[in-house]
Design a protein around this nucleic acid. Sequence first.
DNA 1: TCGTTTTCTGGAACTGTTCCAGTTAACGGT
DNA 2: ACCGTTAACTGGAACAGTTCCAGAAAACGA
Lengths: 148, 148
Amino acid sequence: MTELADPVATLRSHGLRVTAARLAVLDVLDELPPHVTVEQVEERARDRIGALSTQAVYDIMRALHGAGLVRRIEPAGSAALFETRVGDNHHHLVCRDCGRTVDVDCAVGETPCLAPNAAAGFEIDEAEVIFWGRCPDCVKQSESRRRA
Amino acid sequence: MTELADPVATLRSHGLRVTAARLAVLDVLDELPPHVTVEQVEERARDRIGALSTQAVYDIMRALHGAGLVRRIEPAGSAALFETRVGDNHHHLVCRDCGRTVDVDCAVGETPCLAPNAAAGFEIDEAEVIFWGRCPDCVKQSESRRRA
DNA sequence: TCGTTTTCTGGAACTGTTCCAGTTAACGGT
DNA sequence: ACCGTTAACTGGAACAGTTCCAGAAAACGA
């Protein structure tokens, strides 16, 4: 939605070139459900601009992700999913049977492990938490590299 | 370690047949680092019993997982990792640079999103939380199926 | 010990993703 | 408005991880 307001400006302000393919992808991200695969984006975006390679979509999603315009998640056993809701620290609820994915807000102040704020009717059986960052060694390495 | 005590009994008590391949895998899981890929297990287990197909290892890991003897995680961008620490609800810390994976205890009562109990020197930049379960529709379906 | 059932083998297949070389298009400077 | 540089897109090959398949081998209960 924020993107739709002025997609061209959005791309520019993030240092990305403005191309038909990228505009189509932004547009499509806005009208599809909040969690989409490369394949879904590709299909819909191609409808719009006639031709579009799979590779282009991968490139574009990577560019958008790098620019912080989309978030990427990769639930076990599924292809990567992209969402435009970025900047907040929300989490996800995935159905083991049908794969349906919904957002849940961060359960601040609660025990994180079993009680998301609003379970949305899901029967939760596992809370999987992965903290991403850099290990002490890699931190140290990049520091010494910077100093050199 | 629990497994090593009597691997044969462990397999039996979980309804799994006792085979050389499975014993080798259990053994190997005990001596390798706590998070291992299929490939690592395969290589080491084959050393032990001479021959072992990749497929067998996939089957075995699936069987062990199904029996609750191993847990399976699949951090984005990496192959599936298996660990023998099961039954508790611990989480993981993954280095974006080198992929090093370490366990962290569940941050009960804390805000889950940015502060695991012991960050082990990691510089954390994202807390990824996925709640697994079944969505309302799938719950309903299996209920009506059961009733039928 | 035998028959049934599960597991293992080897090979093919598949999905999601990336790599590569070459072409096309966007943007900044004139 | 045009041109050169740089980034993006195309098409095709390659790749990793995983699964599928049919047949051979091994485990277990009778």
